[in-house]
Design a protein around this nucleic acid. Sequence first.
DNA 1: CTCAGTGTAGACAGTTCTGTCTACTGCGGG
DNA 2: CCCGCAGTAGACAGAACTGTCTACACTGAG
Lengths: 203, 203
Amino acid sequence: MERSVYHGVMDRHSNPALMDQTKLSARERILRTAHTLFYREGIRSTGVDRIIAEAGVTKVTFYRHYPSKNDLIVAFLDYRHRIWMSWFQDALQRHGNNLLAIAPVLQEWFTDPAFRGCAFINALGEVGPSMPDVVQRVIQHKAKLRNVIEGLLPNDCERETLASAIAMAIDGAVVRAEWGEPTEAIHGFHHLMEGVSCLKPQT
Amino acid sequence: MERSVYHGVMDRHSNPALMDQTKLSARERILRTAHTLFYREGIRSTGVDRIIAEAGVTKVTFYRHYPSKNDLIVAFLDYRHRIWMSWFQDALQRHGNNLLAIAPVLQEWFTDPAFRGCAFINALGEVGPSMPDVVQRVIQHKAKLRNVIEGLLPNDCERETLASAIAMAIDGAVVRAEWGEPTEAIHGFHHLMEGVSCLKPQT
DNA sequence: CTCAGTGTAGACAGTTCTGTCTACTGCGGG
DNA sequence: CCCGCAGTAGACAGAACTGTCTACACTGAG
């Protein structure tokens, strides 16, 4: 499974019908359906009834696995973190695994038809204030992202500071792409990266 | 009224009770209450009943001015755009009205107790896909912001490209501050700005 | 065999949300 | 004078949402 882009980030089988999930466990079907809908339509906009219907399970099954919608929201973010990070790291590898790989990887992401911004930034804006667990997942996810970026940096610079700045540029590009300007997002990102020290000596 | 920070961005009278609004028109009270609640708690999380109660009006009055919640959402974004932009431009002035002013202005914003990220980015994540009007307001707002930033740039560089990149850095900093790391956001922003060309010759 | 675990089917409760409706009040301008 | 506008007070409809409950079926392990 999971060549190039994997299913989760892009969900190439994003047809609302119950996909090819027939052989998956009910728990997994619920989680994947929730992922698709939460990401595409928003968390609060998506009722559990709809998830239940599209996952092809019953209410009892649903509530047996996820006692409340909040549990599912957290599980969704954890799932998203797993699949997105593994896609991201794989994509970096495919593009040379250095600083210059970030832009094409973002490009790949932004131009995917299922792209709807960063699930964590969106979740933060939507349910952040009322759910500390969500905020914590956002912080974790972004810390891990900075961590991965640090791995692309040479040793002879302030890796942490630099990775932090680059991660910020990425987030800026992501929200920009989210409102429908992916090419401008990539251009802006390039521009910001050009200026960041420690880039020239590398490559 | 409106010295330094003005009411809208920070809403120093952010007590849920009906504030000092007694002498304002019902329409204005509804709009300001909606602004406070939509921004702080999120748009979908805030029911019209609550806005009606806290604004101290009746349902008829409410629906006479805003025939549907969607109308109010759009009015909220327009209002937010007005008060935020005027605060932002005023704050830039106070800090010298050049590129170096942006960081302290952001700092001022991020450390305000009422800060909860960019209302437009949040709205985009929350109701963007289902409301084209919202997306349009986001694009308008961000275009205007880039426009203001262009005004801080010297004539002898690619102002548009540069302003676009800086606006992206701002958005990155904003979301970073939103999950509780305002100082890191400012540091990262400084770092990104350092690298951007056209900065050194100036100031 | 039995029992625990996982599943199906669908009714139901209780809340909240948007939006409508009736009936009444007070005021300023033509 | 009176008509239109803006307002109050609150009942109500209809939908959607989260979560519970009963009753039943299949399967694999001890």
